[in-house]
Amino acid sequence: MRGIQLSLSKHQNLRLDRALEQLESLSSKENSDASVTVADDISVNNEDAILKGHGTTEMDGRVVATMCGVVERVNKLVYVRALRARYKPEIGDIIVGRVIEVAPKRWRLEINFSQDAVLMLSSMNLPDGIQRRRTAVDELNMRSVFEENDVLCAEVRGFQHDGCLHLQARSQKYGKLKSGQLLSVPPYLVKKRKQHFHHLDQYGVDLILGCNGFIWVGEHVEVRDDMVDDLSNKSEEQIKSWNTINDEESEETYTPLETRQHICRTANAIRVLSTLGFMITVENTIEVINLSITLNVGIHEMLGAEFYVVVAEKEAERRSLVTKRDDYQDLVA
């Protein structure tokens, strides 16, 4: 657990320490075989042709860990995965970024990485939905799509020959994000999963868990796929110009008060999980939201010391019950 800086009373401090100690003891039992520290031996069962990966070295015929983390094995490759590490982009990662520069034929984005990422004009769908070559007019109208400080969602395409990290946004689910909050959490708290786009139907909120540690909580937007339309039958007069589309998008849209409250409550739930060092998943987020509603905790009160302590105690209780149930099932089996 990371050092938590909260204004706690003596009683709250004791309760929080007790809950965190219980969580650490449960975690150490689960990862006792996989967790290693510097200079720990890694068991390879005398296998031949072992490939020593990142975080390992050979010493006197033994495979030794050179960093703290969890031992991972892929076929004959053995490496140590750090529990807390900076974000390292991989092809296919869903990321949330902020535009910091509009350059010729590209947008430059901040994505919580050691270098900025690049989204090329040719790597995204145009507002009219037509698949065509990008022209000089398209380049002149780039600022009508994204401008500085806009928040958008994209997919990592990979490092190109120019050494830059390139993104792509060729699907309707990617693009500009509006009417919400952008949160920044340590990237190691967001696990890579098959699904990073979540719609919390009961709250009317969209949740995007970026692999880079940027999380978006915003009003739900219906995603429509323009590719299903028969664009080949559209004439030049039927295709809207960029200016018309931009004018329509610039109209102020009203977000209901109830939806704004749900956005704030969801964002505060993620802040609580991040401060406590818990993994940020849609399940954990919904659990914290429901807990705050059940206890009749106000949105602003969720960031108070008492709610942090209650969340830690509930998580310790839940993990303890899961461990006891697993032990009972193993005993019966």
Score class of each variant (00 low, 15 high):
residue 204 G to C: 05
residue 204 G to F: 04
residue 283 E to C: 03
residue 291 L to V: 02
residue 290 N to T: 15
residue 92 G to R: 06
residue 8 L to D: 05
residue 22 Q to H: 13
residue 192 K to W: 05
residue 307 F to I: 08
residue 327 D to R: 15
residue 62 R to G: 03
residue 298 G to Y: 05
residue 310 V to E: 12
residue 54 H to W: 14
residue 239 I to C: 01
residue 28 S to A: 11
residue 250 S to M: 11
residue 25 S to G: 03
residue 217 V to K: 07
residue 267 A to C: 02
residue 209 L to R: 04
residue 196 H to C: 07
residue 241 S to H: 12
residue 330 D to W: 03
residue 77 L to G: 07
residue 123 S to E: 06
residue 256 P to A: 07
residue 301 E to W: 02
residue 86 R to H: 11
residue 284 N to E: 14
residue 2 R to H: 13
residue 212 N to V: 07
residue 140 L to V: 05
residue 54 H to R: 12
residue 196 H to D: 11
residue 215 I to R: 05
residue 50 I to Y: 08
residue 19 A to P: 13
residue 322 V to R: 11
residue 239 I to Y: 10
residue 276 L to E: 00
residue 314 K to S: 15
residue 190 V to A: 07
residue 310 V to L: 11
residue 113 F to N: 15
residue 64 V to C: 05
residue 262 H to N: 15
residue 131 Q to A: 08
residue 126 L to G: 07
residue 283 E to A: 10
residue 174 Y to H: 14
residue 311 V to F: 10
residue 239 I to G: 01
residue 84 R to Y: 14
residue 173 K to C: 08
residue 93 D to Y: 05
residue 91 I to E: 14
residue 177 L to R: 09
residue 304 G to L: 00
residue 213 G to S: 12
residue 107 W to V: 00
residue 253 T to L: 12
residue 261 Q to P: 01
residue 279 M to R: 10
residue 31 N to A: 01
residue 121 L to V: 06
residue 319 R to L: 14
residue 265 R to E: 09
residue 52 K to S: 15
residue 1 M to K: 13
residue 4 I to G: 03
residue 67 M to N: 01
residue 319 R to K: 14
residue 146 F to T: 06
residue 115 Q to Y: 08
residue 235 S to E: 05
residue 121 L to N: 07
residue 132 R to V: 08
residue 101 E to V: 02
residue 171 S to N: 13
residue 36 V to F: 00
residue 109 L to E: 06
residue 238 Q to W: 08
residue 95 I to A: 02
residue 121 L to F: 09
residue 190 V to C: 05
residue 182 L to C: 06
residue 27 S to Y: 07
residue 13 N to M: 12
residue 67 M to C: 11
residue 16 L to D: 03
residue 132 R to M: 06
residue 254 Y to F: 09
residue 50 I to R: 13
residue 140 L to W: 10
residue 209 L to F: 06
residue 65 A to H: 01
residue 12 Q to W: 04
residue 284 N to K: 05
residue 311 V to I: 14
residue 27 S to M: 06
residue 54 H to N: 13
residue 18 R to T: 15
residue 204 G to H: 04
residue 325 R to T: 07
residue 125 N to D: 14
residue 273 L to S: 07
residue 13 N to G: 15
residue 185 V to D: 10
residue 278 F to S: 04
residue 62 R to K: 15
residue 272 V to R: 05
residue 302 M to I: 09
residue 257 L to V: 14
residue 24 E to A: 10
residue 186 P to W: 15
residue 326 D to P: 04
residue 143 R to Q: 12
residue 16 L to E: 00
residue 189 L to I: 01
residue 130 I to K: 12
residue 292 S to D: 03
residue 237 E to P: 01
residue 285 T to Q: 00
residue 28 S to V: 06
residue 243 N to Y: 11
residue 290 N to H: 15
residue 72 E to F: 00
residue 27 S to D: 04
residue 232 S to P: 03
residue 253 T to C: 10
residue 326 D to M: 06
residue 76 K to H: 14
residue 134 R to G: 04
residue 87 Y to A: 13
residue 66 T to I: 14
residue 296 N to C: 09
residue 237 E to A: 12
residue 264 C to L: 15
residue 249 E to V: 02
residue 15 R to Q: 11
residue 179 S to M: 03
residue 132 R to G: 09
residue 79 Y to A: 01
